[in-house]
Write a protein that binds this DNA or RNA. Structure first.
Lengths: 143, 143
DNA sequence: CTATTAAACGATAATAATTATCGTTTGTCA
DNA sequence: TGACAAACGATAATTATTATCGTTTAATAG
């Protein structure tokens, strides 16, 4: 890791109000060097060669801190447990990042239908699922 | 449940090639009567007053069958485990419904940016997360 | 209408992912 | 440099889900 990256990491930690530790830095760097959408286990395996004694729990704790402080994002805000869609109408979701509530918004109201011009790698699109991430009215008030 | 609903359920079962059982019918009806995005536990609690001896495993099995056969949908196709986004560029996802792979597609290429005109209930939108659901090239070939 | 058979069921064990606990170690800041 | 909160590692606990297996039931051929 070069000096600029170290500085960036330290700045991000102080902005987030968290300590600069060796483990945290190595997890952060691992994420920086990875592509795609790694799971905590995969990140753990990536970090272990550098810190063989690190605990998986530490990896989880740091990932959560990174996400809370906006240094990284989660792929899905609602991956905790299976949910079944009961609304048969075409619609999308308003997802509150604080209380995790999900409200339906019908596709018409949203007005962002437009089909993509073309999809790379021969991907065959069947439908869109749009999550609008933000704050619900209640969580805006309590801030 | 009225006659038309029963007929619809039986037709859906025969189209899916699954048996019409009492438990299955009650789970289906429960889903029909619920709003929002219930979890398997919530569906189970809804069904229990009608079939006190039903097993949670039966509820899970039937939900899966309903989803496989297209009678209902899941809210999120990738809720299995946490994934961290490593791509810092604005982008969306091509999600294959068969192999569950996730490919990034940058927002520009997709070309469906358009902000919504207005959001109901005072929801404050911060960003969009768009999943394009369909079949990747590999899974198209193997069908 | 009944016998056959595969599918479905209920109970529950097993697994996977994640979180909590707790004693020890380490940054941070006065 | 010392005090103290934060972070760490080990691991127990929890939660969500899936697998197993013996029993029951629906589908259907006769």
């Amino acid at each position: 890791m070069n000096a600029a990256e170290i500085r960036e990491f330290r700045d991000a930690c102080s902005a987030a109000g968290i300590a600069v530790t060796h483990q945290r830095q190595v997890v952060w760097q691992a994420l920086r060097s990875m592509h795609g959408h790694p799971s905590p286990e995969e990140i753990y395996e990536r970090v272990r060669p550098r810190i063989p004694a690190i605990s998986l729990a530490t990896v989880y704790k740091n990932i959560h801190l990174f996400i809370e402080s906006g240094m990284f994002r989660e792929v899905s805000l609602h991956h905790g447990s299976m949910r079944v869609e009961t609304n048969p109408e075409p619609h999308h979701h308003l997802v509150c990042r604080v209380c995790k509530s999900i409200r339906d918004i019908d596709a018409e109201t949203l007005g962002v239908a437009g089909k993509p011009r073309r999809l790379p790698d021969g991907f065959l699109a069947e439908r869109y699922a749009i999550d609008i991430l933000g704050l619900c009215a209640k969580c805006q008030k309590s801030m």
